[in-house]
């Protein structure tokens, strides 16, 4: 009985996301960027393929992030704002099923989004090199997991604040997430006893999105340490799970008035 309810909510939120014009707008610009990467690569001599991969992966990542933030912050908030939630919560379901269903619907949307964009990128690369590029595929897989982390953060913020505030907070965490790995180095150099502990705690609390960054490795065809991808996937899933748990805890207590 429980999986049916989650699946039903996931399906409707997927339907809603797919009907959202912003998804197509962002997808269009992402694809446009990937397509023009080939044109831009003509400007350089010798390193065309690197430019295609660099711009292409940036496109998959940036437009994926924008889709996650924009749809993530609105998907729960809209339900409350439009009062569609009034007929859902009184049904014999747990509130956590609502959050999980919403998340699952968005995860499917993001999966499709990444598949379409990375397929486009592979085609662009294929037309240049006449072979598929595995490091790019690997980088795209990790981008997907990064997007899952971001969308869970967006859902968390949108479960208790306004869309604009959620947008700013999520964007901020995304930007911090790409420099937060510095905190661990800082903790080692910081004086005193309290400050290093504080910095370390901050490091573990904030998302470390550099864990999902294999773009440079893909561009320059650098070796990736064994187990890195798997560890990053585990990190992404764990972080997402914890953030969703937080959203659920907030959601359990809140009033819909």
């Amino acid at each position: 009985m429980k999986p049916i309810a989650i699946a039903a909510i996931a399906l409707t939120s997927f339907r809603e996301a797919v009907r959202d014009k912003i998804l197509y707008l962002l997808l269009f610009f992402g694809l446009l960027l990937i397509a023009t990467s080939r044109v831009i690569s003509w400007l350089t001599v010798g390193a065309e393929i690197k430019i295609i991969i660099d711009i292409g992966l940036a496109g998959v990542s940036i437009f994926g992030v924008l889709v996650s933030i924009f749809i993530g912050i609105s998907i729960v908030h809209k339900e409350i704002e439009h009062k569609t939630i009034y007929t859902i919560i009184p049904k014999p379901i747990h509130r956590y099923q609502f959050i999980l269903g919403k998340f699952a619907g968005l995860a499917i949307t993001l999966l499709l989004n990444v598949i379409v964009m990375s397929a486009m990128l592979q085609i662009a690369i294929f037309l240049k090199t006449w072979s598929w590029n595995f490091p790019v595929f690997r980088a795209c897989v990790l981008i997907l997991f990064e997007l899952l982390v971001i969308v869970s953060i967006a859902i968390l913020f949108s479960s208790f604040s306004t869309p604009i505030l959620s947008f700013l907070l999520t964007l901020m965490l995304y930007l911090i997430g790409h420099i937060s790995y510095n905190l661990i180095g800082l903790a080692q150099k910081a004086p005193g006893t309290l400050l290093p502990i504080l910095l370390k705690v901050l490091y573990y609390v904030l998302p470390n999105l550099e864990n999902f960054n294999l773009k440079t490795a893909a561009v320059h065809n650098l070796p990736v340490p064994p187990g890195f991808v798997w560890a990053s996937i585990q990190y992404g899933l764990l972080y997402t799970a914890v953030v969703l748990l937080l959203s659920i805890t907030i959601f359990q207590k809140r009033d819909f008035s």
């Binding site: 009985m1 429980k2 049916i4 309810a5 699946a7 039903a8 909510i9 399906l11 409707t12 339907r15 809603e16 009907r19 439009h82 009062k83 569609t84 009034y86 007929t87 859902i88 049904k91 014999p92 379901i93």
Partner: peptide, 25 residues
């Protein structure tokens, strides 16, 4: 039945009721 109810605008009545039936298991 809430006051001034509002439902997913993009669904048809049958789809909407099916969604509610699924929620009720």
């Amino acid at each position: 039945l809430p006051e001034n109810p509002y439902f997913y605008q993009y669904l048809r009545p049958v789809e909407f009721l099916q969604f509610n039936a699924d929620l009720c298991g």
